[in-house]
């Protein structure tokens, strides 16, 4: 496939992603109407309900227009970066999100490093020592990870390493890079354990499959070193399925971060979302939900493109099944 083929492929994926984004934005917009009761009341929040304020809200959110017109007016504002105003603080949703973004990004990156690093190593170790005690322990750890959501693991970590051993702080996000990393170690670990299970499972299965292939036997027969076979051939091929699972991993981290931030009282986007949900602050919920969903869709898009670039078999349309 030539350069133009790649362009066509990317364009085709965009053609799927754009309608998806539109449907998601429509769903997010419709949240105002899912909330029980009159939308004006939901948007009013704690403000006094005098006729002037109600009229101002109707005017601001175009509530007297037909539903679809409301949606398009809302969407055109969102595209311009205006997510509306929080019903609680009368503060622009975008600036609240900007304040909270740092903690969530730090936490997510930290646990992504843990998920990929530890996950691939454990999965590979399990595959190499297939059938042994070590392998069974790795598999069991994977089952444990899938079964223990981040908020549950978080409570155990908080208790043992925070409250009992005092190794890590149990509250707040910290300031400065190192201090923050220290504060976010337990949350990132709690988040990583639940998501890591996916990576362990996929890496292990892919490694086992690759190790059985003829090219490995051939490479061994030719006297290539084990290290070379593992790192230059087997691992490279086995990591392709891990890349395709990137979407799953990102969804796991992003939604897990919501629970972890609540568990460890971290002022991130997830905690903001839950706070807004509990206080029925619809504009803030719309803002964070939209941000999270768009991010997930874009990651999926990027995953497909990267997948195609790293696996020539896809580019040449020669992949089986």
């Amino acid at each position: 496939m030539t350069g133009s083929g790649v362009v066509v492929f990317v364009m085709r994926r965009f053609a799927v992603a754009v309608p998806l984004l539109l449907i998601i934005s429509f769903g997010v917009f419709a949240l105002v109407h899912i909330a029980p009761g009159d939308p004006v009341r939901s948007l009013l929040g704690a403000r006094a309900s005098d006729p002037a304020t109600l009229a101002a809200i109707r005017e601001h959110y175009h509530l007297d227009d037909p539903f679809l017109i409301q949606y398009f007016k809302w969407l055109s504002k969102v595209v311009q970066g205006d997510l509306g105003v929080s019903i609680l603080g009368n503060r622009a949703v975008t600036s609240t999100i900007a304040d909270r973004l740092g903690v969530t990004i730090f936490l997510s990156l930290m646990s992504a490093v843990l998920v990929l690093g530890l996950g691939v190593v454990l999965g590979a170790v399990g595959a190499f020592r297939r059938g042994t005690r070590l392998d069974r322990a790795v598999v069991m750890f994977g089952v444990f990870g899938i079964s223990s959501p981040a908020f549950v693991t978080g409570i155990f970590l908080l208790y043992f390493f925070g409250a009992l051993l005092h190794w890590f702080p149990i509250f707040g996000p910290g300031t400065g890079f190192l201090n923050r990393a220290w504060h976010l170690t337990l949350p990132a670990l709690a988040l990583a354990i639940s998501v890591m299970a996916i990576v362990i499972k996929i890496t292990r299965a892919a490694m086992i499959e690759e190790l059985d292939r003829d090219y490995v036997t051939f490479a061994r027969a030719r006297g290539l070193s084990s290290r070379r076979i593992t790192f230059a051939y087997v691992l490279r091929n086995a990591l392709i399925p891990v890349v395709t699972a990137a979407g799953l991993i990102v969804v796991g981290i992003v939604s897990g971060a919501i629970y972890v931030e609540v568990t460890f009282s971290l002022p991130g986007l997830g905690a903001l979302t839950i706070d807004a949900v509990q206080k029925r602050d619809i504009p803030t919920i719309q803002g964070t939900t939209l941000l999270f969903s768009v991010f997930v869709v874009l990651v999926n898009l990027a995953t497909d493109v990267i997948y195609m670039l790293i696996d020539p078999r896809i580019r040449f349309g020669r992949v089986e099944s």
Binding site: V251, I258, F292
Partner: peptide, 20 residues
């Protein structure tokens, strides 16, 4: 395909929360 493209756990939190 559409349902799987959504971030499920997030949708659950938001929809359940907003619906009361």
């Amino acid at each position: 395909d559409f349902m799987l493209a959504l971030p499920g756990p997030l949708v659950a939190i938001v929809v359940v929360g907003v619906a009361g």
